[in-house]
């Protein structure tokens, strides 16, 4: 591999017997050893930084949270007595938790399905020969570059009861003002709209990148067989995008189930963590926050967080299964 052999690298493999032959063969032997070690070990070393970072910032908190969830752990408290599975037992009958899970699921469906569908359509439009293609491609990513806080403030003004643009517009059609935070359907839609607005462009770009990797001749062949644009889209584009769709669905699942900032800012004001007067739009993450920082019950908050983690795993695998079925066998 390298020409510099005067300072041998510390051998990682078992050192061979010292060759008795001449200098040349010894050199070759070392070289072979190093080359073997290089190809065996180097790949692991390359990926090691990620796994080290993951261990520190991902795995350790995960395990620690599990540990905390088995205790009666009051934040900044003096003692943390062991409580076994008590927190999890409490969780099963906690209707506030189940309500927050239902909200999270509802908002997730309302935000992911339209988001990915729209992203797919936008991507296929951007994949055509358009004038100012780069401009359009760049502009779909703009919402991503806006801070969530700014987005939420703008949207909560749009959805304001007294002076909001949306109620004002609806008023033009004779619809009386809606208090968007007050009902499940309205708060879920408003929050989903924020999420959709922010993430559709991002997913569109990912789809677009994948679409450009689809060979042109497939479309030509399909066209020769008489497939129109819609047929080409559903029979060529979508099936070939399957791995990408799987990726976006999983990312959206993870993001959707951890939804926190948008609903929190949408319910601005005191006790915003409750997500509305009757917890109309409290997500599981908000409930974790409520337990940790309002009730200081860190143990219970950790239990909720762990259950959320398991639910995300479950949904991600269910989605993966569902998407794998999409478009038939591989």
């Amino acid at each position: 591999m390298s020409t510099d052999v005067t300072t041998p690298v510390p051998a990682t493999g078992p050192p061979g017997p010292p060759p008795a032959g001449n200098r040349q063969s010894r050199k070759e032997h070392w070289s072979a050893l190093r080359s073997r070690a290089d190809s065996k070990i180097s790949p692991y070393l390359y990926i090691a930084p990620f796994f080290l970072l993951f261990a520190i910032f991902g795995l350790y908190p995960l395990v620690y949270t599990a540990w905390v969830s088995l205790h009666d752990w009051e934040l900044a408290g003096a003692e943390h007595p062991w409580s076994g599975l008590d927190n999890y037992r409490q969780l099963v009958t906690d209707e506030v938790f189940w309500n927050s899970l239902w909200n999270t699921f509802g908002i997730f469906v309302l935000s992911t399905v339209p988001q990915l569908t729209l992203a797919l359509l936008i991507a296929s439009l951007l994949n055509r020969r358009l004038r100012g293609r780069t401009f359009f491609r760049l502009s779909v990513i703009l919402p991503m570059a806006t801070s969530v806080a700014a987005v939420s403030i703008v949207f909560s003004q749009l959805f304001s009861r007294d002076f909001g643009l949306i109620n004002w517009t609806l008023g033009g059609f004779g619809i009386s003002p809606i208090e968007w935070q007050a009902s499940k359907w309205s708060s879920w839609s408003a929050i989903s709209l924020m999420v959709n607005w922010r993430w559709t462009g991002y997913n569109a770009l990912i789809f677009l990148a994948a679409m450009q990797a689809i060979p042109r001749d497939l479309y030509e062949a399909a066209a020769l067989d008489g497939a129109g644009p819609w047929k080409q889209f559903t029979r060529v584009t979508v099936p070939l995008l399957r791995p990408t769709i799987l990726f976006t669905v999983i990312i959206a699942t993870i993001g959707g189930f951890q939804l926190f900032t948008e609903p929190l800012l949408f319910n601005s004001g005191s006790s915003n963590y409750q997500g509305g007067s009757l917890r109309q739009s409290q997500t599981v993450s908000m409930y974790v926050w409520e337990n940790a920082f309002v009730k200081f019950d860190f143990g219970y908050a950790s239990a909720v967080a762990w259950v959320l983690f398991l639910i995300i795993l479950l949904f991600a695998s269910l989605n993966a299964l569902a998407v794998r079925r999409l478009g038939g066998k591989d």
Binding site: D38, Y46, I206, P243
Partner: peptide, 20 residues
Amino acid sequence: MIRALRRPHRRPRRGAATLG
């Protein structure tokens, strides 16, 4: 997309330095 990212195997060169 995931497929597109795959590259033919190439022998790593400055492995140790990168790791460091």
